[in-house]
């Protein structure tokens, strides 16, 4: 055996033996299992990030959000409209320094397509307390297909740094029975 500080004869490539060989075998096997687990769980598991997205100009997205709010508004809280989309329909939430707009009111057990985009910087869409996190980018309409399984109020917080008011950027989702 040579020191790792010493140059070696060129014929250094030799198969591992003994416990070293066993360890590499075990490690490789573990890697193969995890490699297969990734696609398996994508199809078996119920929560995936599919990355479904469409390019959209911020002004056009804002117009869609406004139209969505006007046709589905059911109330108001803290000066922010509460909007209830049709069950199974599209819902919009826009991120802008430093608010999420509007408040979404969803029905438990119904499936929605939630469109997320930003009018200015990158933002993070972090739903509490279930701690689910997705990225919001300006210029991209990020579509999440979700089915709420619990009723209640879910604050949304921004978890991508977006300037000095970042820690005050919150929103809300209400899920009704």
């Amino acid at each position: 055996m040579e020191s790792p500080l010493a140059s070696v004869a060129p014929n250094w490539l030799k198969a591992p033996t003994g416990t070293e060989r066993a360890w590499i075998g075990l490690a490789l096997l573990w890697c193969v299992v995890l490699t297969l687990a990734m696609p398996y769980w994508h199809f078996k598991g119920k929560q995936n990030s599919t990355g479904e997205a469409y390019t959209v100009e911020p002004a056009k997205f804002a117009a869609r959000v406004q139209q969505f709010v006007e046709s589905n508004k059911v109330g108001e809280q803290n000066g922010v409209p509460i909007v209830e989309p049709a069950p199974g329909g599209d819902a919009y939430m826009q991120a802008q320094m430093w608010t999420f707009y509007p408040i979404l009111q969803l029905k438990k057990g119904q499936t929605y397509r939630i469109h997320l985009s930003s009018l200015d910087l990158q933002h993070g869409w972090s739903v509490m307390p279930i701690n689910m996190n997705f990225q919001i980018l300006p210029g991209y309409d990020h579509v999440l297909t979700i089915t709420p399984t619990t009723a209640g109020e879910f604050p949304v917080i921004c978890n991508e740094f977006c300037g000095i008011g970042h820690h005050q950027m919150t929103g809300k989702i209400i899920v009704t029975e």
Partner: peptide, 22 residues
């Protein structure tokens, strides 16, 4: 693992439009 964001100054969200906490 409780959702506390990195790069975030205030876990109490003081002054935010909608209250939030961990």
């Amino acid at each position: 693992s409780y959702g506390v964001a990195r790069r975030h100054w205030d876990v109490e969200f003081t002054g935010a439009t909608h209250a939030a906490s961990f």
